[in-house]
Design a protein around this nucleic acid. Structure first.
Lengths: 142, 142
DNA sequence: TAGGGTGATCAACTTCTCTGACCGATGTCA
DNA sequence: TGACATCGGTCAGAGAAGTTGATCACCCTA
């Protein structure tokens, strides 16, 4: 199966993920997992509800709650009341979470530099453009 | 985080995977999981050793063995002796596995048609080209 | 022929995810 | 205003996917 679209999408994602988590671990954030990161990533600036995170990440509320518990215990996020609905609670990025973000961004930028060097700038730009347009039809959160 | 490379790669892969497994389930292949498929996918035409599959999929030999056990029990693969080395065993695609492949290919082709319709042919070609070139530096199996 | 490396497996454990049941708060409508 | 469905979230139990560590059989080479 030479040019399998599934594998072609999977491989660079795995590579990027490995690099980001290696960078995180090296910077002392060695207690976060990919599953936790996928939830963390979807937290809105002004906080998100558990149900929103679950929908965006396409996991059940229970799984999202389980992962947020871990993130909360490790200090990456914090839960507070939702002033507009007493049933809900707002999940926000906490101090340790805020400090981890630039480490991720730097690792992604580094990988992106390497890939640009390999592909050449025009092909890299075309790749990002195509992926961004694809997001319009593949992201339930959008 | 508007244009996060990680998310941009993750979303279309998840979408494609969901579509392929939905098609498989509809065709009666409802007993195969993504993890099993990732191993199955790497089986060479003339058979592969467990260790080869584990390396290509970047999982431990134990995990690969666990997944191959399941695939074997469900009739997707079969294990035979390796004539060149009595320690090793060759894993080959079996009857049920062979019948599942065209279902996957059809599902992938369908998704690719949709994406081409959304992006336009030139952008789709550029996407595939960039991903194929990226494979050169992200696939340990190559 | 002894020793180190390789292919595979066994055992125990962690992490992630699910389904199903449940509880309290909310909103609606007779 | 009270009954009831809905919504946000949690608890309990299970299965799937992955890990490390140990072990065993076989291969190759000095």
């Amino acid at each position: 199966m030479p040019d399998d679209l599934g594998l072609l999408l999977y491989l660079p994602h795995r590579e990027l993920e490995n690099r980001v988590f290696a960078a995180l671990a090296e910077a002392g954030f060695d207690d976060v997992t990919p599953a936790q990161a996928r939830v963390f990533h979807r937290i809105a600036r002004d906080g998100s509800r558990l149900t929103e995170l679950a929908e965006a990440a396409r996991i059940t509320k229970q799984t999202a709650g389980f992962l947020v518990d871990q993130l909360e215990r490790a200090g990456y996020v914090e839960r507070g009341p939702d002033p507009t609905d007493a049933r809900a609670r707002l999940i926000r990025v906490a101090e340790r979470g805020r400090r981890a973000i630039p480490v991720c961004l730097a690792a992604i930028a580094e990988v992106q530099r390497e890939w640009t060097a390999h592909l050449g700038r025009p092909r890299m730009v075309a790749l990002l453009d195509a992926l961004a347009r694809l997001r319009e039809i593949t992201d339930p959160d959008l």
